[in-house]
Structures are given as C-alpha cells and as structure tokens.
Amino acid sequence: MPKAWVVVYSITDFITIGMLLTVVAMNSLKRMESCLRAYTINSILLAALMAVSAFYLDAAHLYIAAAVTLASKGVVIPLLLRKVVRDLKITHEVEPNINTPLSLVITSVLVVIVYSSLSKGIFIEGFTENTLKVSISIILISLFTMITRKKAVTQVIGLLLMENGLFLAGFSLTYGMSTIIELGVVFDVLMGAIILGVFLSQIKKTFIDLDLDKLTTLKG
C-alpha cells in the first residue's frame, strides 16, 4: 500500500505531539508575540493533520476543511489578535498566578493523568489511535493556562487553543463531519475571535488595564 508511510513513520503522532508541545510551551512564554506564534503553529499543525488524514483516507472534503482551518485559524485569527495586541500596546504577560516551573510540572502531571485514565476503556482503531489522549490533554492544559494567566489576551489565546483541542478530539472520533458543519464551526470561532477582540478593546478603554485580577477590586 503506497500510503503506508503515514502509519510507518507515525506522522499523526508527530503532528499531535507537536500540537501538545506548543500548548505546553504557552505556559512558559511571557511575550505576547510568542504566545500568538504558539497558537499559529498549533493551528497550522491541526490543518496539517487534517490534510494528512485527507490524503490517507482519500476524503476530498477533508482537504477543504484543512484549507479553511489553515486560512481562518492559521492566518486570519492570529493577524487579528496581533493587531489587537499592537493597538492595545501589550507586550508582556505579568507574572502568572503560578510560577513557570511549577506550572510546567502541573502540565506534565495533567498529561500523565489523562494518559493513564484513557489508557483503558476507550479503544480507537486506526492511525489516529493516540489522538484522543493528546486532544484531551490539550483541552485541560489550555484550561489551566486560562486559570493561571492574568491578562485577558492570554486567556483568549488559551480559549482558542482549547477550541483547537476540542476540534482535534471531534476529528479523531469522527474523521471529520460534513463540510457544512466544519464551515459553521470555523465561522463561529472566527466570529468569537472578532467579538473577543472588540471586547478586549472595550475592557482596555474602560478600565485602562487588561489585568483581570484588578477587576475584582472594583466596588459598586
């Protein structure tokens, strides 16, 4: 079989582990530009995974989904967020609630918990057998990122990474839904990113700072 190299060289494992790495790296990155780059790489890898699956499964509609993912999550949303970050003049994250080494340790513990609890019970055959574990790790780690980070922009990036993880989970279970649903999901995310961008500007305009911890000190 000419397509055996996808399985032999465990291409899907490489791509999904790469996605996991970018999400873990988010926890140690301080510069906003680097965080955005991590998200961009994550999205590009997601699109690459879909393209490889399309190639492996001979499913033409997955090529369309991959292209749409690449265009929206890999290009449009990062550019949009970069514009927001530049306009609001945020360059660095303040010190997160949990310091970097400890949060890195917690992320690896999260991955261990996910792997050990999913290792029995759920069996997925085929070339995406490990994808579900990785995707659930991604979801939990980005949730953790959203909890520990203080700036609203990093929390938005965490939310978007979480969405990538959910997308990956759905993809690994269904091998892609019909094109209409995929398009709808992508459109939703795009709208969400635009709305969050406007929202960030409004927070900045009203409260001067994007540090969400400071919002709790407001008294009515």
């Binding site: 582990i17 790296a25 140690s28 970097t100 080494p101 890195l104 340790v105 690896s108 991955v111």
Partner: peptide, 9 residues
Amino acid sequence: GAAFVLSAL
C-alpha cells in the same frame, strides 16, 4: 524545568 518537562513528555 522546560527541558525536564520535555523529557517527561
């Protein structure tokens, strides 16, 4: 620490 997490992963 990041290197350690890499090797743990």
